[in-house]
Design a protein around this nucleic acid. Structure first.
Lengths: 342, 342
DNA sequence: AAACGAACCGAAAAGGCTTTCAGAGACGCT
DNA sequence: AGCGTCTCTGAAAGCCTTTTCGGTTCGTTT
């Protein structure tokens, strides 16, 4: 039943086309299509049919001009490459897409100038709000208070506490990770993690330490900061085993580190998880499921962060402003690399 | 020098605000700011200063309504999760961002219904064009010929040859991969790759076979199709070594497979690259640089694909329509896992 | 029969911008 | 002085939709 001649490449139908075809005025056509009550049912039907025949889609641009709200938001990422931005972005896109909001994507490539440029461009397009997604949890410069639209920061909080930021709770993440290891009966727990220049690394270590203290324990040695790489995981494990051969769990700052740790443990003849339990961080599927055994990991619920940011922005557009840093809980995803001591 | 009272949260300045402040009409103000020639230099200067004082940014929505072109495009991905979409998206965003085009991001989550919904929404916003990004290189259903704006398909080509699609040249990729191994003096080359349901897997195998044939050689055994996982890489390697212990190179269908291959090779006492050279596919940094040794891999130049798609769309909006499937060359990134036989 | 609501419809304005066209000065020429 | 020519400027139309408000038609009430 293909239509012989669709509307095709000519100008899309406008409301006045519909009105003409239905034999009413544009005003009536508008009311009919928008469910306004001052239209006779029969007339409304005629208009709807006309609209369908012309496959009329109301021009959101015109609508936006009139309403003062465009139904668009800007999503400003600092680097798409980083794998943390993507899930957040997905969550936000998802939360908005369900409504009638469209998302402009802008990647600043970590450059402040480019970021400014994008902000200007987005404001020129009269977005109703902005979400700023960072690639690390360290605070970042605020876009300022003088913007004409609300802004929500996701993952990387703003350094201005008047702004609203949504971040994962990395201290809590450290706690629940250790809690899981304790629940598995482990007591000699080491922590190998990434670059100490990252707040995430320091906070996770802090949380881990606090959970251990609550149980009357301490970490085996100090937290071993280094790099977010497999290489560091391997190197640190070698040292760890030399110093503390009796360790029975290693909490790692990332899944990459964890893979390095597991490799060296196996090479040195330690069984995972029987002798040593290993936990990662980030719950990055490629790494967790490919490792032997599959890796227990902490998931930061980044999609959730994205959705929460979208939701917060939505309510802020509605007028309800919040501020401060709100942190969302993380969760432990249990796989084969951790198990109770038998 | 902070301004005491910025434009802040009040309505952004409009052109008529600027005109009033400069003491001219909106028409003149418009011409002055847009570089039209029919304005005295002195008047223009006055207008520009007024615009600056009010930090005036022209309303792109109004401009779009008038011009009939909005300076926006829709970027329709089928799944953001997949790692192939991201670089393409970055490339496209980059190519457009440099100009004055803004990108609407929509993720269909692999659902045709949702895709349709997004297309409708985007057309309602009067995007000037559409880029459809797929997650595998197998052809996908066309959006149809009746759309009012040009469409370019990236990575996953349309099944309608009247559409324009930009894809990586996977056959060529298989060729250059084998060429590199041949250049390293390898002659007993095996191919372990992923799911044969993927066109990419079949095409790469085809290209590899062709390059070998050109050299008067054949693969060691047949291409070993399986899954895109480390696990399959390990399993296939075990079988391969049993059947052909003299193999001197393994071309893998993905970096994940390659990591599995390398692991088993090492465990069985084969040195990489001295005894066996190993190549991956996709050039996925996390995997290539973390493996021991770092992995030589074929990069599909996906950012390039994204940029090319953006560029093609741009010219199509300008009126120059192309059609068919255009494939872009891949490149070999050489790291430690391949080296000349000494 | 006159008046009154209710129900329905359409003209017009608004939103911010660009462009066209006509008008206003300024200037030089005959 | 009168005329044509430039150079600037501004009024107004147009883009597409929504909303307000005034007008018309009916049926109902006194």
């Amino acid at each position: 039943m293909a239509q012989a001649t669709g509307p095709s490449r000519s100008h899309p139908a406008t409301l006045s086309d519909v009105a003409r075809l239905a034999g009413v005025s544009v005003a009536t056509a508008s009311k009919a299509l928008n469910g306004r009550s001052q239209v006779r049912a029969e007339t409304r039907q005629r208009v709807i049919e006309a609209a369908e025949r012309l496959s009329f889609r109301p021009n959101q641009v015109a609508r936006g001009l009139l309403a003062g709200r465009t139904g668009t938001v800007g999503l400003l990422t600092s680097d798409l490459e980083g794998r943390f931005s993507i899930p957040i972005l997905m969550g936000a896109e998802d939360a908005f897409g369900a409504g009638e909001v469209a998302v402009f994507l802008c990647d600043a490539r970590g450059d402040a100038i480019r970021e400014q440029h994008h902000v200007r461009a987005l404001l020129g397009r009269r977005v109703d709000g902005l979400i700023v997604v960072g690639s690390r949890t360290d605070p970042r410069p605020s876009l300022g208070r003088e913007l004409p639209v609300p802004v929500v920061y996701a993952y990387a909080p703003s350094d201005d506490t008047e702004d609203l930021s949504i971040v994962p709770d990395n201290v809590g993440a450290g706690r629940i990770a250790v809690d899981h290891l304790l629940a598995c009966g482990r007591t000699r727990i080491a922590h190998i993690t990434g670059d100490p220049g990252y707040l995430a690394a320091r906070e996770r270590a802090e949380g881990a330490g606090a959970a251990l203290a609550d149980a009357g324990l301490t970490l085996v040695g100090r937290p071993r900061f280094g790099a977010w790489s497999e290489g560091w995981g391997r190197a640190a494990t070698a040292i760890l085993l030399d110093q503390h051969p009796d360790v029975d769990a290693v909490l790692c700052g990332s899944d990459q580190i964890a893979r390095g740790v597991i490799d060296v443990l196996r090479e040195r003849g330690h069984r995972v998880p029987e002798d040593v339990a290993v936990m990662g961080f980030d719950n990055w599927r490629v790494l967790t499921s490919a490792s032997r055994p599959p890796l227990t990991s902490v998931d930061m619920n980044l999609e959730q962060v994205g959705r929460a940011a979208a939701h917060a922005l939505f309510t802020a557009i509605g007028g309800a402003r919040r501020s401060g840093v709100e942190s969302l809980p993380c969760r432990v995803v249990i796989r084969g690399s951790t198990a109770p001591l038998s």
